[in-house]
C-alpha cells in the first residue's frame, strides 16, 4: 500500500489491442508511472457493459501498482453510450464465449508485450465477467491468478446452453491453469450458493488451487457502490482479499 510521502502517478487512456480472430478492439489501460517491472491484470467487464465502473476499477488496480487493462468485449456491437451498446448485446444473446476468450487472450498478450510488466498477468471479472474469468483462465494458458466475483452461469443445465454459450465453464475445470479466488453472496440467485458448492466440488475433484468466500447478507454485485446491492463491509473485505491474492500470485 502507498504512504503519504511517496510519489504516485499513473497514465490511463484508451488504446487498441488485437482480439479474437485478430480483430482490433479498443481497451482501457491504466499503468503506474515508473519503470516497473509491474504485475498486471486483465479486467473483464460485466453485463452492463464497458462502463464507468470498469474504468474506475482499472484505475484502482493501477493505484495499487498493477498495469491494468479492460478490453471492450462489446466493440463489435457498435458504439454509443455503454448502456445502449450493452442493451444491443443483451438482445443478441450476449457476446459469444469464443469471442470473449479470444479478446481476453489478446488483452493478456498485450500486457505481456509491455517491457514494464513483470511477466505475471492476473484476470478478474464481476457478474458475467466473473463467469468469463473462469472461462478464460480455463481455456487460455498464461494467467497466473484469476478472481471470479459472483459469476453466474458457471454451472449451467442443458437448457441454459445457447449458441453463444455452448459449454458450461464448469466443464472446463480440469483445464483451469491458475489459482482461483471466488467471492460470492449468500443471497445471490445467480450464482446460488448451491451452484457455488457444485463448482467448488468440481475444483476439489480436479485438485485445483482455489479459495472461495461466501458472504452473508450480500447478494449479486455487492461491490457496486452505485447500486442498492452495495454492501460496504463485504465489499471492503472482498477488495482486501483480491489485492492479497494478486500480491501473492503476481509479485515478481
Amino acid at each position: 500500500m502507498y504512504e503519504t510521502d511517496q510519489y504516485e502517478g499513473m497514465l490511463a487512456e484508451t488504446t487498441t489491442v488485437r482480439g479474437h480472430g485478430g480483430d482490433l478492439i479498443n481497451a482501457y489501460i491504466a499503468k503506474p508511472m515508473g519503470p516497473g517491472p509491474h504485475p498486471s491484470v486483465v479486467l473483464i467487464h460485466h453485463m452492463p457493459g464497458w462502463d464507468e465502473w470498469y474504468r474506475e476499477a482499472t484505475r484502482k488496480f493501477a493505484h495499487h501498482g498493477y498495469v491494468a487493462i479492460s478490453p471492450n468485449l462489446y466493440f463489435r456491437a457498435g458504439h454509443g453510450a455503454p448502456d445502449d451498446v450493452a442493451a444491443k448485446v443483451r438482445a443478441d444473446g450476449g457476446a459469444p464465449d469464443d469471442q470473449v476468450v479470444g479478446d481476453v487472450e489478446g488483452a493478456m498478450q498485450h500486457l505481456r508485450s509491455l517491457p514494464y510488466v513483470n511477466g505475471k498477468v492476473g484476470v478478474i471479472g464481476t457478474c458475467s465477467g466473473g463467469r468469463n474469468t473462469v472461462l478464460a483462465a480455463s481455456c487460455v494458458k498464461g494467467f497466473s491468478a484469476a478472481v471470479d466475483c459472483w459469476g453466474g452461469r458457471v454451472v449451467m443445465s442443458e437448457a441454459d446452453l445457447t449458441p453463444a454459450q455452448p459449454v458450461a465453464p464448469i466443464d472446463y475445470t480440469e483445464d483451469l491453469s491458475c489459482p482461483l479466488l471466488g467471492l460470492f453472496g449468500e443471497d445471490d440467485d445467480s450464482p446460488t450458493p448451491e451452484q457455488v458448492a457444485i463448482h467448488e466440488r468440481e475444483l476439489k475433484k480436479h485438485g485445483k488451487d482455489y479459495e472461495f468466500h461466501m458472504y452473508p447478507n450480500a447478494g449479486h454485485g455487492f461491490f457496486y457502490y452505485h447500486r442498492p446491492s452495495y454492501r460496504q463491509e463485504q465489499a471492503l473485505d472482498g477488495w482486501a482479499r483480491i489485492f492479497a491474492f494478486f500480491e501473492k500470485h503476481l509479485a515478481a
Binding site: A77, H79, G80, A81, A87, K88, A91, D189, H220, G221
Partner: peptide, 24 residues
C-alpha cells in the same frame, strides 16, 4: 435481467430500437 438504472436486482427491460441506426 439486471437493469442498468432501476434499483432492482432484476427488471423487465423493454427496448424499442432501430438496429439500422445503431445502439443509440
Amino acid at each position: 435481467d439486471h437493469p442498468a438504472n432501476a434499483p432492482l436486482d432484476h427488471a423487465l427491460n423493454i427496448d424499442f430500437v432501430n438496429e439500422a441506426q445503431g445502439p443509440g
